Simulated assay, not measured.
Amino acid sequence: MLLCSTTSCISFGAGWFMTGYSLKPGGNKAARDTAFSWRNVRQDKTTAAWLDSLNSVGALRDTFITCKEKPKYRLHAWYVKASRPTAATIVVVHGYTNSGITMMPYARMFSHDMGYNVLVPDLRYAGLSDGNHIQMGWRDRLDVEQWIDILPTIFGDSIQVAVHGVSMGAATVMMLSGDELPSYVKALIEDCGYTSVWAEFKKELKTQFHLPPFPLMYTANTVCRMRYGWSFKKANAVEQLKKSTLPMLFIHGTADTFVPYTMLDELYAAKPNNKWRWDAPNAAHAETFWKYRKEYAQRVRKFIEEHIGSCL
């Protein structure tokens, strides 16, 4: 009996460690250090020049909202308005241990190159948003949906919207795709998102620690439910995609091993219809934009124009 109790305590402790390691990595310092993020993103000269041009006229703005569910965290986003009142609006969602600032090269593509409105949120526990852990896209989807709800107050009532995300941001996009969204949301773009939090953590457990899923994944999942109120298994992009009716563009690099390229087939198959895909040759995780910058912009723009053509 004592042995069983000791084993259970060890297993629970290991699960507690895993949730902290995965959902509060290093205090998420890189994502919350905005000065570091600005310095890092400005290494891309085209993005730096765009940011300077925005700042010179006060065009890069930010705003806060308070999330609907308790605790009442403040959530932050950057935004840039287009010169045309009829322009489409793109919501750009960042990835794991990143923040909205890291998505500024993508925001530049949508704003400077394509002429769209852009809103770039900081997900919880990132950038200037409150929060006590990384939500891996599952409850982030609810926060992004709240941002979507207030877009007309920022950009005007006659808007049409596309949502774009990379990595965990892509998982967020797929996870919100199965929810009821406002009629002005017209298209979704996911770039290298995972099938589920369970599947991604299971893969990382094997890759990083050479451990099987039992028992650690199960105890960690229990700890996550107890501490944060959500489940690795429930956080499932595949199940949400099965309910999705909006047009979606799937992008994944064929050399991606962090979020395995093999996940793309399962994700794409789960979406019943209105789907497009780009298997980017030899691109590693979140590398497609950087490896094929011109083609990335062309493909994304064509997809958006096909589904939001009336407001361009």
Score class of each variant (00 low, 15 high):
L3Y: 15
S8T: 13
C9P: 02
C9L: 15
I10P: 05
I10W: 07
I10T: 11
S11V: 15
G15R: 04
G15N: 06
G20F: 03
Y21C: 04
Y21E: 08
P25F: 12
G26K: 12
G26M: 11
A30Y: 12
A30W: 14
T34W: 11
S37P: 06
R42P: 04
A49P: 06
W50I: 09
S53G: 14
S56I: 14
A59F: 09
D62G: 13
F64Q: 09
T66H: 11
K70Y: 10
P71H: 06
K72H: 15
Y73T: 05
Y73V: 06
L75Q: 06
K81R: 14
R84E: 08
A87C: 05
A88F: 04
T89I: 09
V91H: 02
V93Q: 04
H94W: 07
T97W: 08
N98V: 05
S99G: 10
S99P: 07
G100S: 15
M103I: 02
M103R: 04
Y106W: 09
A107T: 11
N117F: 10
V120Y: 03
R124V: 10
Y125P: 01
L128I: 02
G131F: 06
I134L: 15
M136R: 02
W138D: 01
R139C: 02
D143T: 06
D143Q: 02
E145P: 00
I148C: 05
I148S: 02
D149C: 08
I150C: 12
L151S: 06
L151Y: 05
P152S: 09
F155T: 03
D157M: 12
A162E: 05
V163R: 03
V163K: 04
H164D: 08
H164A: 05
V173T: 03
V173Q: 00
M174L: 01
M175D: 00
M175A: 00
S177P: 00
D179K: 03
P182K: 02
V185C: 00
D191Y: 01
C192Y: 01
Y194V: 00
S196Q: 00
S196C: 02
A199M: 04
L205D: 01
T207P: 02
Q208I: 08
M217S: 10
Y218N: 09
T219H: 07
A220F: 09
A220C: 12
A220T: 04
T222F: 14
V223N: 05
G229P: 04
K234I: 12
K234L: 10
V238S: 10
E239C: 09
P247I: 05
L249M: 14
I251R: 04
G253S: 09
G253Q: 08
T257N: 14
P260I: 11
T262M: 10
T262A: 15
M263D: 12
D265C: 08
A269W: 11
A270D: 10
K271P: 07
N274R: 14
N274L: 11
W276V: 12
R277I: 10
R277E: 13
H285T: 12
H285I: 12
A286Y: 03
E287D: 15
W290S: 15
W290H: 12
K294T: 14
V300M: 12
V300N: 04
R301I: 02
K302T: 15
F303Y: 08
E306A: 13
E306P: 02
L312V: 07
